[in-house]
């Protein structure tokens, strides 16, 4: 079920340092395409083809992005968003894995909880924010709750499905050797389920960021989601686009980091 992976696995032949063309390989045209799009953006804004207060030239956006590096609001907002996303992600994942395994192994719990989980699962997270505000207010409790909720479902679903596919003979063998219940879980079930859990966790990373931004847009007073809206009101589209840029870089970095960790920690991933 590895779904949100990479576009790699393409025959990117390692080429010796040489001309740009050789180093980029087939991607040269892709990079040129992006350059062309950005150039068009720049020109359309400078020459006034698109007249809008919210269509700044690319160079202005880049300048705004660079000037933030010396310690601006964007980085502070980004840090707040990441802190929330990470906290919510951690809570949602732990609950997702724990309930996924427990429900996968215990029939009683399955009967008690699965229907409830399946009822709540299809609600798109933004829809629960308005009612939750009335109970949780608009602060971290709300945002972290929403992020945990969004994270929980893919992790739970994948873990649950993963546990179901654990080879019964493995468990039987463990039982024959009188391995304790906890040890079986830790040494047999968990490793066999890890690839599935990892796939769920990866889907959840992008969801966590999406929902963090959403909750800040709907009920924010800090964080990058709020910043985006605030900059619209402050007539600073350059900063708004710059914030989107930083967010894109963050998303990219998170995905990369995840792949590296996955390769390190679960070397048997994708070999089943």
């Amino acid at each position: 079920m590895s779904v949100v992976g990479t576009l790699e696995g393409a025959s990117s032949k390692p080429s010796a340092a040489g001309s740009i063309r050789r180093r980029l390989g087939p991607r040269l045209y892709g990079v040129l395409l992006i350059a062309a799009i950005l150039l068009f953006w720049e020109v359309s804004s400078r020459l006034g083809w698109i007249v809008s207060a919210y269509w700044p030239p690319v160079t202005k956006i880049l300048w705004a992005a660079i000037s933030q590096l010396g310690g601006g609001d964007i980085l502070v907002s980004l840090a707040a968003t990441l802190r929330r996303a990470l906290t919510g992600y951690a809570i949602g994942s732990v609950l997702g894995i724990a309930l996924g395994i427990l429900l996968g192994k215990s029939k009683v719990l399955r009967i008690a909880l699965l229907p409830l989980i399946e009822i709540v699962r299809p609600i798109p997270t933004p829809a629960v924010i308005p009612p939750l505000i009335l109970f949780l207010g608009v602060d971290d409790a709300l945002k972290i709750f929403a992020i945990s909720l969004a994270t929980f479902f893919p992790v739970f679903t994948n873990t649950f499905a993963g546990v179901a596919t654990v080879d019964d003979t493995l468990i039987q063998t463990a039982r024959t050797f009188r391995t304790s219940w906890a040890r079986t879980l830790l040494r047999v079930v968990l490793p066999a389920t890890l690839p599935a859990i990892a796939a769920g966790l990866r889907t959840a990373t992008s969801l966590a960021l999406v929902v963090a931004v959403v909750s800040e847009m709907v009920a924010g007073s800090s964080g990058i989601g709020y910043y985006l809206v605030e900059m619209q009101y402050a007539l600073r589209p350059d900063l708004m686009y710059a914030a989107v840029m930083y967010l894109a870089i963050t998303g990219y970095a998170v995905n990369r980091l995840f792949l590296v960790l996955e390769a390190r920690l679960i070397p048997w991933m994708g070999k089943t």
Binding site: P130, I133, L134, F135, L136, G137, V138, D139, L142, V218, A219, G220, S221, Y226, V229, E230, Q232, Y233
Partner: peptide, 20 residues
């Protein structure tokens, strides 16, 4: 302790929810 929100009508819901 200021909690700015951009144009959103969450002032009263936030009062009810105990944030403000």
């Amino acid at each position: 302790d200021l909690a700015p929100t951009a144009g959103g009508a969450i002032g009263i819901p936030g009062l009810v929810g105990g944030s403000y």
